[in-house]
Design a protein around this nucleic acid. Structure first.
Lengths: 227, 227
DNA sequence: TGCGTTAATTTAATCGCTTGACTAAATTAA
DNA sequence: TTAATTTAGTCAAGCGATTAAATTAACGCA
């Protein structure tokens, strides 16, 4: 319903290739993924990769542009809202901890939902690989959204903890907070065995959110003065 | 100095192949890594992979047996010590929070040091890949040590939080605690840019440990009654 | 509407190259 | 002399890229 059906034949092919490549690249990595396998998964002739994207590399970048668009769609609204509230917040007010906590919960609720919705696709695997050996694709991803999200959470940590704005401590803490959620995707095998979660379903996600909320509150207790 | 020099010619070849394969498999993944590249990195003829390990797959398993041995060497002593203290601890004593906190810090100090020492090798990348698509190698790794470590931390969370022993909540919390550290390896690209850490050095590790300790204490405040 | 022309897109086939596995012969150690 | 180990070379299969030819859609004009 959200998709316009006025896609030309070429655009349909581009689309099918990107969606197939998302899966195949995610499962096998760039080198091990074959253009023939991608083309077959897309139901399309192999030479069309060269025609539409210039080659394997071009298709890979196309996949990341697609991902970036999706993440933007999910996170931009809540990020903008948090930025707005941050600009208005008095950094020394008495309830600034509660405020920071609330905004973090908004942000990470959206983050969790996005990850959950796309957990079946190849997102996680693709980004994980790029984290280990960043290429042009990661530069794109980081500059367009990741840096914004990280900066936002870092400012929220500063607000909630009283630590100096953008200090190294705040940045480390921001990374750690993400880590608490991401570990369920990055260490999927361990999570699967230790928790018996063969796949992340709605119930699992709810339990995860509950514990995350508890831990977040313990890190930024609303009623206690800052360190 | 720790290595006995009584290795036969064949054992030397096996050793060289495993060390080279650790790097090449880690960098490229199983499929994309070529046996020729591994053999060249080991300074050895390609056919020797087939001779000594039966094939590519056998070499891959050999690499994981090597890794498992190393992790055991690092973690088994502290794990045994914690298990011993856990067996003696009275689960309802007044300082059980402080006790749990102390044991967690011992455990994760060892964990951090191990990760740091081997961060240059291909460990992280290899295990990360197995987490996404577990093969026989991950089964081996999980059964031989990962399950023990996870179980241990889960029991410590139970002791420190007052939550029911081995409840799902405890297991989730245990995963999250690991996540706070692992994120600096799994999201290496983001960490590199957000923190300016091009590689994890001694200073960075110290800063990381400091923040981790603070967060851990906030989750299990020594002087406060349990939830 | 229908025809003819042009551009966009798709197809099958082929190129040189690399892959993992294997083998027989050569080399080394016991 | 025997067994363990290493070597160079070969095999079929799959790789990414490219090409010329075939097919399809788009547009101007009658």
């Amino acid at each position: 319903m959200t998709e316009a059906k006025v896609l030309s034949r070429g655009d349909q092919t581009r689309d099918a290739l990107i969606r197939a490549a998302l899966v195949v690249f995610g499962r096998s990595g760039f080198d091990a993924a074959s253009t023939r396998a991608i083309a077959e998964a897309a139901g399309v002739n192999q030479a069309l990769i060269g025609y539409h994207f210039g080659g394997k590399q071009g298709l890979y970048l196309g996949v990341f542009e697609h991902i970036i668009g999706q993440i933007r769609e999910h996170m931009a609204p809540v990020a903008a809202q948090v930025e707005h509230r941050l600009a208005q917040a008095t950094p020394e007010g008495p309830q600034r901890r509660a405020l920071a906590l609330e905004m973090m919960q908004d942000l990470f609720d959206a983050f969790n939902d996005m990850n959950f919705q796309h957990s079946r696709e190849g997102w996680v695997r693709l980004i994980l690989r790029e984290q280990q050996d960043p290429t042009e694709a990661f530069q794109l991803l980081y500059d367009s959204i990741l840096s914004r999200l990280m900066g936002l959470v870092t400012r929220l940590v500063a607000l909630g903890s009283g630590l100096e704005q953008d200090s190294e401590a705040c940045r480390i803490r921001a990374m750690m907070i993400f880590g608490q959620l991401l570990v369920f995707y990055t260490a999927r095998g361990t999570a699967s065995r230790h928790l018996g979660w063969k796949e992340l379903n709605r119930d699992n996600l709810a339990a995860l959110k509950r514990q995350f909320r508890i831990v977040l509150e313990s890190q930024f207790p609303p009623g206690v003065p800052a360190v």
